[in-house]
Amino acid sequence: MAQNTPLNTEKPTRNIYQFGEASEIALATKNLHVFYGNNEALSEGDLQFERYKITSLIGASGSGKSTFLRSLNRMNDNVATVKGEIMYRGLDINSRAVDVYEMRRHIGMVFQRPNPFAKSIRDNITFALKQRGMKDKEQLDAIVESSLRQAALWDQVKDDLGKSALALSGGQQQRLVIARAIAMKPDILLLDEPASALDPISTSQIEDTLLELKEKYTIIIVTHNMQQAARISDYTAFFHMGKVLEYDETRKIFTRPKVAITNDYISGNFG
């Protein structure tokens, strides 16, 4: 198949989408390098993410997509060395001058496996807010309701907000985790394969939720599931061996990829 045919010289080896002057960029990386010890897991991650859009990061295991995502809100600080710039609101948030905890309130993250706290559903959402000094009960209640509604969970749990979050199903837990993240009113939401541990029904519910959320949030999602990327995202970046080989509008990537390896990956030849 395509793997065996020599690369067409007319096909470029890289294709990175250039945003126009008019587009609003929520987050951009410049010359990002991530090292685990002496191993370089990611190099030259130069990407821009448009506001109020969903961007998918795809690629095989070990391609560097999760590493990239986790670097964006510095979840890799204690595990890896991250070099380069991550520009957010005109600041390089990878610099030590930026307060990492404050930054993560604006750039939230949801992980592969649902990780609700061993607390009640309500406390899961209010805990971080309370830690940041919000005390007004009505205000907290309002946030609990609105974030659970946004995560499409409100109707299922509104009568037992005092119940332990661990009693929820996996899909419900993941939506609670999303509600917990948006309760902080972040700018940007990073999701690391949020549906990979869930059944198909929960997955489609989460996808619906994300599509609604993009009205208010910039979403960057790592996924293994090509159909998922095609269904929900506006832009897609293809990671291969620690580099971004192709970054384009999703429909272009999935119909007419410009880079040969991207074509191989999305048509299932490896990965």
């Binding site: 957010y88 609101r89 600041l91 948030i93 001058a97 930026v98 307060d99 990492v100 905890y101 404050e102 930054m103 604006h106 830690q131 940041r132 000094g133």
Partner: peptide, 9 residues
């Protein structure tokens, strides 16, 4: 706020 020292810090 990003440039200030947060309560969390």
């Amino acid at each position: 706020s990003l440039l200030k020292t947060s309560v969390a810090t």
